[in-house]
């Protein structure tokens, strides 16, 4: 395995999230003065009860949701109303969704080729070469010509990961990537995610998989009602949680 392919962990913030707030039109407060810094190569796992704003936080990082106030800077680019900046950040940030969101009218190969050709302006041959490399990496080369509907959930999610990686992102966001999967398929997707983490990819992962959090993460953020309740290393977080609320949450999910 290539070690630290995506750059060594460094002390400066790679993603700087400064006091961001977001309230949905229906009045639900998703994020309130949320602040965190994510380092290059860091694997951050975000957990919390449903409705706590985890997914919204993730979706703000690449501008899928607009923030009401505060600031987000990714690799030196300020995420604001400037369309160019937004596209620039999206090129650098890959995202994997709970529902896979593959393009149903395209083959697996075309799904992964599309953005390479349109956004990275690669030729068909260059894109396909990269695509086949990535399919090998997620261990699903034989399905290159299949349509998403012919694949199992686990296979679809691995294709979705390959599609995001094809853009050579500097950071990957995982929004409950295994929550829609049948139990027997969760392992194969987590395996790919672990490999990525091992290669030094910067990752922000919203998940309910505590095993993954414990094993792979550099830092766990526990949030509730749009705020960070507690944040720390996996070891600290699972074994010596400080906050009462964290203990209550952990006892609920770890039984």
């Amino acid at each position: 395995m290539q070690d630290k392919q995506f750059g060594a962990k460094s002390s400066f913030g790679f993603i700087t999230v400064d006091r961001i707030s977001k309230t949905f039109p229906n009045g639900v407060v998703a994020l309130s003065e949320f602040t965190t810094h994510i380092l290059r190569g860091e694997v951050v796992v975000v957990i919390g009860p449903s409705g706590s704003g985890k997914s919204t936080f993730l979706r703000c990082l690449n501008g899928l949701e607009d923030i009401d106030s505060g600031s987000i800077v990714v690799d030196g680019i300020v995420l604001d109303d400037n369309k160019k900046n937004r596209l620039e950040i999206r090129k650098e940030v890959g995202m994997v969704f709970q529902q896979f969101n593959l393009f149903p009218h395209m083959t697996v190969r075309d799904n992964i080729n599309l953005a390479q050709r349109l956004v990275r302006k690669k030729t068909r041959a260059e894109a396909t070469e990269m695509t086949m490399d990535l399919l090998r990496k997620v261990n699903i080369t034989e399905k290159a010509d299949a349509f998403p509907a012919q694949l199992s959930g686990g296979q679809q999610q691995r294709v979705a990961i390959a599609r995001a990686l094809a853009m050579m992102p500097k950071v990957m966001l995982f929004d409950e990537a295994t929550s829609a999967l049948d139990p027997e398929m969760i392992g194969e997707v987590l395996e790919v995610m672990k490999t990525l983490a091992g290669e030094g990819m910067t990752m922000v992962v919203v998940t309910h998989e505590m095993g993954f959090a414990r094993e792979v993460s550099d830092r766990v953020i526990f949030m509730e009602a749009g705020k960070i309740v507690e944040s720390g290393t996996a070891e600290h977080f699972f074994n010596h949680p400080r906050e009462e609320r964290t203990r209550a949450f952990l006892s609920q999910i770890l039984t």
């Binding site: 501008g63 999206r90 890959g94 995202m95 969704f97 896979f100 969101n101 393009f103 599309l114 953005a115």
Partner: peptide, 11 residues
């Protein structure tokens, strides 16, 4: 989700 995927890919 289809729109999300397009945006996330930078289309």
């Amino acid at each position: 989700g289809q729109f999300d995927a397009c945006h996330a890919l930078g289309l």
